[in-house]
Nucleic acid binder design. Structure first.
Length: 414
RNA sequence: GCGUCGGUGGCGGAGUGGUCAAUCGCAAUUGACUGUAAAUCAAUCGCCCUUGCGGCUACGCAGGUUCGAAUCCUGCCCGGCGCA
């Protein structure tokens, strides 16, 4: 069925597999990690460096590029890949996650109309806004969901916009990534069963519409792959139901939807991963936002082929790096005069020769080079980790590879 | 030497009779960050302990006024500026 994805090796004892995805911009050896370049750039890392690290794909975001610089600019630049001078395979996320992160579906908070939204006559002056107490202190406001789509205000200028599945697909066609996602509604694992089910069903309906919109564009369907996203939160039956529904629609691939932040508990990822067993075997699976080292290996063991995650660049920018013995915070006094190499056990191309003391100084003094070095290291670390997993799968030793890494990674915590 | 302004926590700088261990910023310390509204955010930041709307010592130094002073008065020390 799907000529674009071929599984070449399977791991014994786990669902891990290695394969290759064919795209117009080149083949992707899977499993593969995609650094996140939300606004058509991986923060602090040059495309040439990404290539040196062995990164094969970059993921960008529909919501952000739509608002800035605008789809037409990206299009005139030759499409996402050329525009950002990457020239390799790219993925775009649909904007569905923003529906969530902008506050809307956060923590089952009741949406309410703010006073300012209502004019004297009692009529809405502009779109109502979802109000969320948890994010209120940091951010203002946000987006509102209905069955047809999402209305939101730009975080740049407050202007009003609306995304529907059709609109998201249209924008993603214009951006021109090799792989893109159907518009979905992401939820927190802490949502109630009722809401989780509602959001899942809405996501399925949006998936159908996204797929239809994609198929209607004869040009785009030749060049781009569309992945449908499964949801269901922390409920096994919903997860399975969602996987089956999305798996049967005829998508080119599957996106594991959700938010797996630690604040939702340690098991939210693993319970969601079980849904993958319900999918057609030869369907490529993408773990959306899965990127902590041990999570990546866990996901691979469940048959995930692609990943993207902001963590590598975000924690790097904030001065933390992955090591085989866990995350370390370079800002810490512990490393202020530590003359050892950044990570003696994992030397990433481009970071050779930098000492912990030096990078600690850069971070402490807010020099951007510090953030760049740490980001580069972290992206390289995850790419290498996944490369290692791929090699291990091919050699039939994925489980020992994973076990060794996980054990060592946890050492430091005690 | 005279005049004048000023001396507050690691630094900068509020406070100008009471609820001040002292707003705030920086630095420091620790932590968070998983489809990026994040080069962001949070906590701690005089000493002691049984960590409590607890005890103690603090606002250049020494006295004084007052129920009560970082805040008012006197003297001294130090610094900036001006005049000699």
């Amino acid at each position: 069925m799907s000529k674009h994805f071929i599984i070449t090796e399977r791991s014994r004892g786990t669902a891990a597999r290695a394969g290759v995805i064919h795209t117009p911009h080149g083949d992707i050896q899977t499993p593969a990690f995609s650094p996140v370049g939300t606004k058509a750039n991986v923060k602090g890392v040059m495309p040439s460096q990404l290539r040196d690290l062995g990164a094969q794909i970059v993921l960008a975001n529909t919501y952000h590029l739509y608002l800035q610089p605008g789809v037409d600019i990206v299009q005139k630049g030759g499409g996402l890949s050329a525009f950002m001078n990457w020239h390799g395979p790219t993925i775009t996320d649909s904007g569905g996650f923003q529906v969530f992160s902008l506050g809307a579906a956060f923590n089952r908070k009741v949406s309410k109309f703010l006073k300012e939204d209502v004019a004297e006559g009692g009529e809405l002056e502009h779109a109502p806004v979802i109000f969320d107490e948890e994010v209120q202190s940091q951010h203002g406001q946000l987006a509102i969901i209905d069955d047809d789509g999402v209305t939101f205000t730009s975080h740049h200028d407050g202007s009003l916009h609306r995304f529907t599945p059709e609109r998201s697909v249209e924008i993603q066609h214009a951006l021109g990534a090799d792989i893109f996602f159907a518009f979905d509604e992401c939820t927190a694992p802490t949502e109630s069963y009722e809401y989780q089910r509602e959001a899942m069903l809405r996501t399925h309906a949006w998936a159908e519409r996204s797929l239809k919109a994609h198929r209607q564009n004869i040009d785009a369907r030749e060049k781009q792959l569309i992945f449908g996203i499964g949801q269901g939160g922390s409920f096994d039956d919903l997860r399975k139901q969602s996987a089956r529904a999305i798996g049967e629609m005829g998508f080119d691939g599957f996106g594991l939807g959700g938010s797996f932040s630690k604040k939702y508990g340690d098991n939210s990822l693993e319970s969601a991963l079980k849904m993958l067993a319900e999918l057609p075997e030869d369907m490529p699976r993408h773990g959306l936002g899965v990127g902590e080292p041990t999570d990546v290996l866990l996901a691979i063991s469940y048959g995930v082929d692609l990943f993207d995650c902001v963590a590598a660049t975000r924690i790097g920018r904030h001065g933390s790096i992955y090591t085989k013995r866990g995350i370390i915070h370079l800002r810490s006094a512990e490393y202020h005069s530590d003359q050892s190499m950044l990570d003696p056990e994992m030397i990433i191309p481009g970071t050779e020769g930098f000492t912990r003391s030096y990078v600690s100084h850069l971070i402490r003094s807010s020099e951007m080079l510090g953030s760049m070095i740490c980001s580069l290291h972290n992206v390289g670390f995850i790419v290498a980790l996944v490369d290692g997993a791929r090699a291990a799968i091919k050699e039939g030793r994925f489980e020992p590879y994973r076990e060794e890494f996980v054990n060592k990674y946890a050492e430091r915590r005690s």
